[in-house]
């Protein structure tokens, strides 16, 4: 019988090795597998390469891994000013950053998962982020070549799963999760709830279980809900 469920986050992340390249899903706290990442902090693997939209915050999840000095390199689009742990390590020169435009980042991951050798995008042509990259003119417009991204592990978050690893997301949780699930050797999922086989109708499965290796259900960490005020200064 196929059963991809695991009893604990600890068990789910046990095989992560030093030097691993790991994709972390989420956009801010939404769809961010915080408790898998906390389990990885306890597990101890180090010298990691992290692929993520942001750099996490302070001492929790990805921010915590960075604070602990466990991340050698970050590939991200937006290490925000609030990413305190990242900022401190980066400014000391203890962590390498590859800055990638957000649409290019997700498309590189998509290419990796889809078995493509890369793609040409207009994004970045004529800017500092295209320096050293191949430029090709297509229909009179400059495009930048971007290669595929893959990883040893992807840590992702979904709302519900079944034992086959079929996933269903809630609201804006999909963000990078759906794409990252296609591009890593071992895909580990944190979910709110595991339902019996057949508990997800075929139509409500957003990511088929073929992409998924391990699933663990945990209650949400209350620290993750932090409403912010709108309309901040530009």
């Amino acid at each position: 019988m196929i059963d991809k469920t695991m009893a604990s986050c600890r068990e789910a992340v046990a095989t992560v090795f030093d030097g691993a390249r790991i994709m972390f899903g989420g956009f801010g706290d939404v769809g961010m597998p915080g408790q898998l990442i906390e389990a990885l902090r306890d597990q101890g693997a180090t010298d990691l390469v992290a692929i993520s939209n942001g750099a996490g915050g302070g001492g929790y999840a990805l921010g915590g891994l960075i604070q602990d000095g466990r991340v050698r390199k970050l590939m991200a689009s937006f290490p925000s000013p609030r990413a305190a742990a990242f900022r401190e390590r980066y400014l000391k020169g203890e962590l390498e950053l590859e800055l990638i435009p957000q649409g290019t980042l997700v498309e590189r991951i998509r290419a990796g998962g889809a078995g493509l050798g890369g793609f040409y995008t207009p994004t970045g042509a004529g800017t500092a982020l295209a320096e050293g990259k191949e430029i090709r003119v297509i229909d009179g417009r400059e495009y930048v070549f971007e290669g595929p991204l893959k990883a040893d592990f992807a840590f992702i978050k979904a709302h519900r799963a079944d034992r086959f690893g079929n996933l269903s997301f809630r609201r804006t949780m999909r963000n990078f999760n759906q794409i990252m699930a296609t591009a890593a050797t071992t895909v580990i999922v944190e979910v709110d709830e595991i339902v019996p086989a057949g508990g997800l109708s075929a139509e409500e499965i957003h990511t088929p279980g073929i992409f998924i290796d391990r699933v663990v259900a945990v209650a949400r960490h209350p620290q993750l809900f932090q409403p912010r005020k709108p309309g901040g200064a530009a």
Binding site: S77, Y90, L99, I100, G103, T123, G124, L129
Partner: peptide
């Protein structure tokens, strides 16, 4: 990004500007 900014971040700005 402004010159001399120590921690860069681009997000979706470039994709929007090109697209």
């Amino acid at each position: 990004s402004v010159p001399g900014e120590k921690v860069p971040g681009v997000g979706g700005a470039m994709d929007l500007a090109f697209g």
